[in-house]
């Protein structure tokens, strides 16, 4: 598995898109800091980007890689290598290189601009960790789509739809249901609904650090416990982990049974 991981990783690291992705974040980090000159404001802007862009790139990149390396995968399948290793190796290679680009692309400008001297370091670390999680989650979901759909056009369609749903449509439905049922106690519902979408989940995780004063304005006891104590942080982190592990497990599960 490590060999395949290494192969995938180096293959991607050499590819143009990885560089583009890395340079994009590098440029973004520098521009943000150059324009604002204030680390804490840059962290807020960055949050918006991470929540929207990282899942999109993870999805598109994942599905592209899957379809492009199909012949190579089939070649590997002919060798005496366990399927688990092939697919996990490929997945970790893609997710790893994307995470690498993200962390270093954003990390370098922030470190140069004196992150270690600023008190935003914890917020920033949280941001990068969430970004890494989102990359892993959405790459895994893309792999799932690719493995279940032979038709590339369909697969791409589903992938884009998945992103659109998670990033925008879900929140819209969420908001409508909250307003429709405003007569009822909704704090349990809204917390559960948040946990069911990795994008919302990461957003909440970052909000816990950035906007805690606003979140504590709401009176609900469940909210208060979730936001006011470390329970929120722990539960959100666990749910993110679940969101990573389950799709990865499904890749292996489906790949083992699939007739190539």
């Amino acid at each position: 598995m490590l060999k395949i991981l290494k192969y995938s990783f180096y293959d991607l690291m050499r590819s143009r898109w990885s560089y583009v992705y890395f340079l994009f974040y590098l440029l973004l980090g520098f521009v943000l800091l150059f324009l604002n000159n204030d680390v804490s404001k840059a962290v807020i802007t960055l949050m918006n980007i991470i929540i929207v862009l990282v899942p999109l790139i993870g999805t598109i990149f994942g599905i592209m890689y899957c379809y492009n390396s199909k012949e190579f995968t089939e070649l590997l399948l002919a060798q005496p290598i366990p399927r688990r290793s092939i697919f996990l190796g490929q997945y970790l290679g893609v997710a790893g290189s994307l995470t690498f680009s993200l962390v270093f692309g954003l990390g370098i400008p922030f470190v140069i601009y004196g992150l270690f001297k600023s008190n935003a370091i914890f917020d920033f670390t949280l941001l990068l960790v969430t970004g890494a999680f989102l990359t892993m989650i959405f790459t895994a979901l893309a792999f799932n789509i690719a493995i279940s759909n032979e038709n590339r056009i369909k697969g791409f369609g589903y992938a884009v739809l998945l992103w659109l749903f998670m990033a925008v449509i879900y929140d819209g439905l969420f908001l409508i249901s909250l307003i429709l049922f405003e007569e009822y106690p909704l704090d349990n519902f809204s917390l559960v609904a948040t946990l069911l979408n990795p994008v919302d989940l990461s957003r909440t995780l970052i909000l816990l650090k950035l906007d805690i004063s606003a979140l504590l304005g709401y009176t609900g006891a469940v909210f208060k416990q979730f936001f006011g104590t470390n329970a929120g942080l722990v539960i959100s982190a666990l749910m993110l982990l679940m969101w990573t592990v389950l799709p990865v497990w499904r890749i292996v599960f489906v790949a083992k049974r699939k007739d190539f």
């Binding site: 929207v52 908001l175 307003i179």
Partner: peptide, 18 residues
């Protein structure tokens, strides 16, 4: 919206709200 339905505060800073 938050004044009307306080629970919506959880959608703070989401793309949809933006």
């Amino acid at each position: 919206i938050v004044n009307r339905t306080p629970e919506t505060i959880i959608l703070l800073r989401s793309l949809f709200m933006d």
